[in-house]
Amino acid sequence: MGFKLLSKLLVYLTASIMAIASPLAFSVDSSGEYPTVSEIPVGEVRLYQIADGVWSHIATQSFDGAVYPSNGLIVRDGDELLLIDTAWGAKNTAALLAEIEKQIGLPVTRAVSTHFHDDRVGGVDVLRAAGVATYASPSTRRLAEVEGNEIPTHSLEGLSSSGDAVRFGPVELFYPGAAHSTDNLIVYVPSASVLYGGCAIYELSRTSAGNVADADLAEWPTSIERIQQHYPEAQFVIPGHGLPGGLDLLKHTTNVVKAHTNRSVVE
């Protein structure tokens, strides 16, 4: 069995187990497998329904001669939608809004960016022009300005110390501490036991640490421990890039980060 097929099978099995364990909360999309990078042309966006009122959005972007996937989250909030992270750029984010209108038909009224990198804030200006209120932590807003990236308009308070959590509509926002970046936030959907790890969490097929220019490698494993301790009931975990899975993604990420750190020390 090929690795790609095995990865998709694991996603399907995880979703099936969740649907059985929580039949009222989960209505997993039966329309197909989780979209992969090879299936999404740059400039297009796919939506994948995880649970009743919960979707991931998947886009792709060219970077350094390669094409990478990027995940975000959409959560229903009454007759409105909360968006977590842009679709990595203005063109993708405009396509995301169009796809949401086509498939869901509810307005996106608020959006949260989970850290300051372009795959999370690139497209904020498109959201703002569409009347979406954009939010991020003060740290993310400051770092985005320093980096020359787009800056969300509103500040999220109460997320300055490791372990801080605040309720934001249908989700809980959690600051686990520094990891992929010093400002990275985690998003949890309690009604569906869905954990969105953003770039602080890796997919299972990833074996290298990737972009760690703004990471705190020493603190990252401790931050992941905080996530595990705060959300032990999480059933569906979405990484910032690639295929979702279960809580095993947290341990896998820790292993990859520690291996990278150990290699760096040896070198």
Rank of each mutant, 00 (worst) to 15 (best):
A144T: 11
R128P: 05
V45W: 01
T86A: 05
V189F: 04
S155G: 12
V256I: 12
F116A: 08
I227V: 11
V75G: 01
E99A: 14
L10H: 12
S22T: 12
I58A: 07
G163C: 02
H252T: 02
I84L: 13
Q229H: 11
E80K: 09
A15S: 10
A192Y: 07
H117R: 02
G2K: 08
A59Q: 15
Y188V: 03
Y34P: 15
L159G: 02
L159Y: 05
C199N: 02
D29V: 09
Y68Q: 09
I224Q: 01
V11T: 08
L106P: 05
Q61V: 15
R120L: 01
G2W: 08
I84Y: 00
E147F: 15
D85H: 04
S139T: 13
G65Y: 06
G246M: 07
V266E: 14
K251E: 11
M18N: 15
G245C: 04
Y175D: 03
A98S: 12
A19Q: 15
V28Q: 07
G43D: 11
N184M: 00
I20Y: 07
D64N: 10
K102C: 06
A178C: 05
F236L: 08
A94S: 14
L250P: 04
A19Y: 11
G131R: 09
I186R: 02
L217N: 03
T261S: 11
I40K: 14
V45T: 07
Q235A: 10
L204V: 13
T36K: 13
Q228I: 09
R142S: 12
A144N: 04
A59R: 05
T182N: 13
V11A: 10
H57S: 03
A215P: 04
L156K: 05
V256M: 06
D125A: 08
P239R: 01
P190R: 13
G242V: 05
P239H: 00
Q61T: 09
G245D: 05
Y188P: 00
V257W: 01
D164T: 11
R128Y: 11
G177P: 01
G158R: 09
E225M: 12
W220N: 02
S27L: 10
G242S: 05
W220Y: 07
S62W: 05
S191D: 13
T182H: 11
G177V: 04
S56N: 15
Y175M: 06
V237P: 02
T36Y: 09
V126E: 06
H241Y: 05
V212L: 05
F168W: 10
L127N: 00
V171Y: 04
P69A: 14
A178E: 08
G240V: 04
T261A: 11
L73W: 00
A144D: 04
T182A: 11
S139R: 11
W55N: 01
T253Y: 03
S22D: 15
V54D: 04
I20M: 11
P176L: 04
L83G: 02
V166D: 06
L82D: 00
A95C: 04
E225F: 11
K258W: 10
F174T: 02
A111T: 09
I151M: 09
N211L: 09
Y12N: 10
G242I: 03
T134I: 02
S137W: 04
V37K: 12
R142L: 13
R142A: 12
A94E: 14
D216E: 08
P107T: 14
N149S: 13
E33V: 10
L247C: 06
Y188I: 02
K258I: 11
T254Y: 12
